[in-house]
């Protein structure tokens, strides 16, 4: 797949705000969108970076991956680390559990999405910003541990794209 006609960068927040910390992805998108409208911005993003709250739509998101050269996925990730830990990694650096035989639309998550994008040869640079959740039980609102790292997290995300070279760093 050629990169011609592709859009530049997408920051894609995924997760379910009704499962507490799993909502960190959509929350980041909300905050970054709000930031864009402010006069005195703490975080600056290049003009060609789009923001999208992907919710819990797994397979449907493939269409968006197809449209961009670079995608940064923000998601709560079970990494067995201290709650609130943030890690930036590429799909190649992690073994993501594919529930291949448990596949339905409801079971189609980010791991499956990435595998599909790779299999279909999307010419795509992909980075995942994982946040270790503390609590993914039913309910709204983030845990203290995750709330405390939000500012750092926004800084990390906005620093991933180099302001001059426009490359993922």
């Amino acid at each position: 797949m050629t990169t011609r006609n592709k859009k530049e960068t997408l920051i894609l927040g995924v997760g379910n705000p009704l499962r507490r910390d799993d909502g960190i992805g959509p929350e980041v998108i909300r905050l970054l969108t709000e930031e864009k409208t402010k006069k005195n911005r703490m975080y600056e993003l290049p003009y060609d970076v789009d923001l999208l709250d992907g919710g819990t739509d797994g397979l449907g998101l493939i269409e968006y991956l197809k449209e961009y050269k670079k995608v940064i996925i923000i998601d709560a990730v079970e990494m067995k680390l201290a709650p609130g830990t943030v890690k930036v990694f590429t799909p190649e650096e992690a073994v993501m559990t594919i529930k291949a035989d448990a596949l339905s639309t409801h079971g189609f998550g980010i791991a499956e999405l990435i595998k599909l994008a790779k299999g279909l040869d999307f010419n795509l640079e992909l980075v995942i910003v994982g946040i270790q959740p503390e609590d993914v039980s039913y309910g709204e609102g983030l845990s203290k541990a995750v709330e405390l790292v939000i500012n750092d997290l926004l800084g990390t995300i906005t620093n991933i794209i180099h302001p001059e070279t426009n490359k993922i760093q």
Partner: peptide, 18 residues
């Protein structure tokens, strides 16, 4: 039958990234 929540599970190959 119905809907549920998705959480990504990973295990790192080289656990040396910040």
């Amino acid at each position: 039958i119905s809907c549920s929540c998705h959480l990504l599970d990973v295990e790192f190959i080289n656990d040396n990234k910040k």
